[in-house]
Simulated assay, not measured.
Amino acid sequence: MHDPYNAFTLGGDVYIDGTGDGPLAGLTFAAKDVFDIAGYVTGAGNPDWRRLAEPARATAWAVTRLLESGARLVGKTHTDELTRGIFGDNSHYGTPENPRAPGHVPGGSSSGSAVAVAGGLANLALGTDTAGSTRVPASFCGVWGLRPTLGAIPMEGVIGQSGTFDTVGLLADSADHLARMGEVLLRKKPPTQRPDRAVVLEDALEASDPAVADAIEAALPLIADAVAPVKRGTHFSQVPLAEWVEPQNAIQGHEAWETFGDWINRSNPRFGFEVADNLLRGARVSKTSLSAARGFRLRARRWVQEALDGHAVLVLPTTPVTAPPVHSPRSVMWEIRSRIISLTSIAAMAGVPQISLPLCQVEGRPLGLSLIGPRGGDGLLLAAARRIAAAL
């Protein structure tokens, strides 16, 4: 495949035809290079992992499900190393080029998957989402993306990092394609009922750049028409959203070190600076910090559930910023990373689904508007996306 955006991995030229005339027949998909394909090495964005890994013995459940539904696999896509990043850069393989915002990062860690869709190289793509790794690139690249309810789609045959937060992520070039993909992987049809109200999270708007907040405000009439009556004035969190970052990082970092620490100790692999820093921070999380973070997560889940009570969906920017320029200083990116996680941790902490809709632009760059639904409400969000797309 011609790949002008560096979306696909070296050695990622995996082509497998779908079977039969299922609901995804005629569509193509790409898979993040953490999904096993039988007979191929899963590289996970790190050359030492790829060098030491054996070819997969079986194909990941989600890949198999898409193939059996008629979609054709067209390749494996780049990821941040071991999925431990949020901007899409990779010190070994380079940064996939953002087709919708040239010169700006694509977002990660499902960077190649989002770029493949945004660049017209695939209709659908599989990613993963732990702290935003599907939602962030969906926002930055201007595509449709879903983080499902935690546990709704099996992670079988997928390299994850944090069992508390890891989900399969879905990316697509249209609302209809995303919904069809979701129906296949979630194994259920979207409901016909609509939410009772769309609750704007004022906390999230206040934590975002003013231009981002303005873009979301401008899209609210569309949400009111296509989704549900818009309710304003809700500050759902009992602490500033910036204070959600440390608990998210503590749990995720600790579990990532539990996942990869033994391999790192044995193999002494090469990592980019930021990935190495993230892994080492996770190794040093104290029992006290971890206990406090898990207690915070329980409270955060309750706050989200209370805001969703009564068949509501929540409205917020997917990211508080648009895609920053490639090669921005690390110190600048660290601050942006924390601001992003302050929003993406809402659904991650609660284990609920979130859909990113490519409805907004700021200075010509894409920006996702997100809807968060109740646990198990994935179909509710996919149906809302279809109605929004029909109204555009």
Rank of each mutant, 00 (worst) to 15 (best):
Asp3Gln: 00
Asp3Phe: 00
Tyr5Ile: 00
Ala7Phe: 06
Phe8Glu: 07
Thr9Val: 12
Leu10Arg: 11
Leu10Ser: 14
Gly12His: 11
Tyr15Phe: 14
Pro23Tyr: 09
Ala31Glu: 14
Tyr40Met: 09
Val41Phe: 02
Thr42Gly: 08
Pro47Gln: 07
Arg57Leu: 08
Ala58Cys: 06
Lys76Phe: 02
Gly88Asp: 12
Thr95Met: 06
Glu97Ser: 10
Asn98Arg: 05
Gly108Met: 12
Ser109Ala: 14
Ser110Pro: 13
Ser111Pro: 01
Gly112Glu: 06
Val115Cys: 00
Leu121Pro: 05
Thr134Ile: 14
Gly142Arg: 02
Arg147Asp: 04
Gly151Leu: 04
Thr167Cys: 07
Ala172Tyr: 01
His177Asn: 15
Lys189Phe: 00
Pro191Thr: 02
Gln193Asn: 10
Val199Leu: 11
Glu202Ser: 13
Ala204Thr: 05
Asp209Val: 10
Ala213Pro: 08
Ala218Ile: 04
Ala219Met: 08
Leu222Pro: 00
Pro229His: 06
Pro229Ser: 09
Thr234Cys: 15
Leu241Arg: 09
Ile251Tyr: 09
Ala256Asn: 10
Thr259Pro: 10
Thr259Leu: 07
Phe260Lys: 04
Phe260His: 12
Asp262Lys: 14
Val275Met: 08
Val275Pro: 09
Gly282Tyr: 00
Arg284Gln: 15
Val285Asp: 15
Ser289Cys: 05
Arg294Asp: 12
Leu298His: 04
Leu308His: 02
Gly310Gln: 15
Leu314Ala: 03
Leu316Lys: 01
Pro317Gln: 08
Val321Ala: 11
Gly351Pro: 00
Pro358Ile: 08
Cys360Ile: 09
Ser370Glu: 04
Gly377His: 03
Gly379Trp: 00
Arg387Val: 04
